[in-house]
């Protein structure tokens, strides 16, 4: 049992990776630069796993097992090993094969500082950003500009179209929400939330938190002068939209 645990767990990981790759959902978990590498290594591992089945390697490593059993797995607690294996394999099947693939949610936004990480981006790219084609700007670009401390004069007359998921402003949840995205450098574990504030009193009646929307508007001063977000979008129309195939930005 124990020696096959690795093969079975590998196989669960292999099938999950290949399925995510085939259905174009790997981007929910890892940066696109790893797609090819992941799929190639997974296919190589799949060949090795099938070879292990073909050669019936279960019998072959008996010898090591004899020694191993004199170690930590021996004695009264011996039953823990198969029990642990079954729990791990079951959890792996549920996590990787049964649960629907999903993006991170507002729960993670509240764990991590929204727009807390955009600073460096702005320092590096502000020159490029401020001269660019504003119609092509993403949530990330606008969030960087807002975070850089540019004032309302800079934003005057510029129209932003942003798509992201809805997450409420911590300080003024009744009137302001953010159109947010996660920036991913490696995999979902390092995702950093960024977002553009939208002033829309009563938004909670129209949009569910974590639902995806597209908002188009010019930037204006926040009518609530005491708010921590001085510059906001005040759109006439906010359109519900589908979650994009690549929900994260890079």
């Amino acid at each position: 049992m124990r020696r096959w645990q690795g093969v079975v767990l590998s196989l669960i990981g292999i099938v999950a990776t290949l399925w995510l790759g085939l259905t174009g959902q790997l981007a929910l978990y890892i940066h696109p630069r790893y797609f090819v590498f992941s799929v190639v290594m997974t296919v190589i591992a799949a060949v090795l796993v099938l070879a292990a089945f073909a050669l019936g390697s279960a019998k072959v490593d008996d010898h090591e097992h004899d020694h191993a059993d004199t170690g930590a797995g021996a004695g009264r607690w011996r039953w823990l090993w198969p029990a642990g294996s079954i729990v791990t394999i079951t959890a792996a099947v549920v996590g990787l094969l049964v649960l629907p693939p999903s993006t991170l949610t507002t729960a993670t936004v509240s764990q991590r500082d929204l727009n807390g990480s955009a600073a460096t981006l702005t320092q590096l790219e502000i020159g490029k950003l401020s001269g660019g084609d504003y119609s092509a700007f993403t949530v990330r670009d606008w969030a960087s500009l807002l975070r850089s401390g540019a004032d309302l004069d800079f934003f005057a007359g510029k129209t932003a179209t942003v798509t992201g998921f809805v997450t409420s402003d911590k300080n003024d949840p009744a009137n302001v929400f953010f159109v947010a995205r996660f920036v991913v450098t490696c995999c979902a574990v390092d995702a950093q939330p960024i977002g553009v504030p939208v002033y829309h009193p009563g938004w909670q009646d129209e949009f569910a938190t974590d639902s995806w929307v597209t908002a188009t508007s010019t930037f204006q001063a926040n009518p609530d002068a005491a708010s921590r977000v001085p510059i906001v979008l005040i759109p006439d129309a906010i359109t519900p939209t589908e979650q994009p195939a690549q929900p994260y930005v890079y």
Partner: peptide, 10 residues
């Protein structure tokens, strides 16, 4: 689940 899966897939 998403975070754990992403560590495994990565």
């Amino acid at each position: 689940a998403t975070l754990s899966i992403s560590v495994v897939i990565e």
